[in-house]
């Protein structure tokens, strides 16, 4: 059952003009793709698509939000992706350095069915959904982004985590010869992130392959990234090549870089201060005055139970 908070249609459900204008193109491409599949058994749309190409067969409105979506231009030009450079605009500038085809993902650790999968094979069984989530960066800015992806839960269950599995570790591609940021010792490459297994299995946690109806731009983490909307953005690791189920809490990059600033949990929490940024407020991109930051980024009713009995100022 799709789970939604706003069953009524809102302004956000209106098809963006650009997609409306390109509806014939969608149909043509779907038809071509269908023909391709019929003729030669070509893999689904995602593996064929280049960054920026429209995604088809997406179930819309699975999770909606009554807040204006951040313009695509801002969401794709203002990003943190240190692999492509430490500035906000560098990742978009050097996006083409990231090669997303061919792409393989290794699933290993405490699973019954470990293996190395091509992106197409990995994605094939998972129907794509559009979910509009808030994105809150630890740097106290935020956006609203219509992601396209599927729950991580379905993917993890396919590979059958063992009884020992308690955490999920993720790793970004490591390609220092191409990725300008990785040629520098800014972080201990490759970028690593992790979740507790129950966080990873939560229905809000998704793997995304697209946004704004299209394949993810490289700077936004193509071809496959995590989205955990109640945590600071750095948890939502980009360009994933490895998923490891582990018994122990895995090391995570920003936590290793500055443990007093970035915790393992990194739940959005206005009550837990950060040495650099006032976390009680945030600047929504496109707005002038800061708005108050919501506990768990506004997903408190859905996720607070995961942390019952935990001291969130210690486990920040």
């Amino acid at each position: 059952m799709p789970f939604r908070w706003n069953p009524e249609l809102t302004a956000m459900d209106v098809t963006p003009e650009i997609f409306f204008q390109q509806r014939r193109q969608f149909i043509q491409q779907s038809a071509l793709l269908g023909a391709g599949v019929a003729l030669g058994g070509i893999a689904p749309a995602v593996s064929l698509a280049e960054p920026g190409e429209p995604l088809t067969n997406v179930q819309k409105g699975v999770v909606t939000l009554d807040e204006p979506v951040t313009p695509f231009k801002d969401a794709s030009s203002y990003t943190n992706f240190y692999e492509l450079g430490s500035g906000k605009e560098e990742p978009a500038r050097y996006g083409d350095r990231l090669q997303t085809d061919p792409w393989h993902v290794v699933i290993e650790g405490e699973v019954n069915r470990p293996g190395r999968w091509s992106l197409a094979d990995l994605l094939k069984p998972h129907p794509l959904e559009e979910r509009v989530y808030r994105l809150r960066c630890v740097e106290a800015w935020s956006m609203v982004i219509p992601w396209i992806g599927f729950p991580l839960k379905g993917l993890l269950e396919r590979f059958e985590p063992t009884a020992k599995a308690r955490y999920v570790a993720f790793e970004t591609i490591h390609d220092p010869s191409r990725l300008p940021g990785q040629a520098q010792n800014m972080l201990d490459w490759p970028y690593r992130e992790g979740l507790r297994l129950d966080e990873a299995l939560h229905p809000l946690t998704i793997l995304a392959v697209g946004m704004y109806g299209r394949v993810l731009p490289n700077q936004n983490g193509a071809p496959l990234r995590l989205v955990v909307p109640w945590k600071y953005g750095f948890k939502s690791i980009k360009s994933i090549v490895r998923i490891t189920l582990t018994e122990n809490q895995p090391p995570t990059s920003w936590n290793q870089q500055a443990p007093t600033e970035y915790g393992f949990y990194a739940n959005v929490n206005p009550a837990v201060d950060h040495p650099r940024w006032d976390q009680s407020k945030e600047r929504r991109i496109g707005e002038f005055l800061r708005r108050p930051t919501l506990p768990f980024n506004g997903y408190q009713t859905q996720v607070a139970s995961l942390y019952q009995g935990m001291d969130l100022s210690k486990n920040f």
Binding site: K73, D74, A75, Y78, K88, W141, R283, G286, F288
Partner: peptide, 12 residues
């Protein structure tokens, strides 16, 4: 600023 060249976060 006039030509909209301050990016997504003009204040920053």
């Amino acid at each position: 600023g006039i030509s909209g060249g301050l990016g997504a976060n003009p204040i920053e």
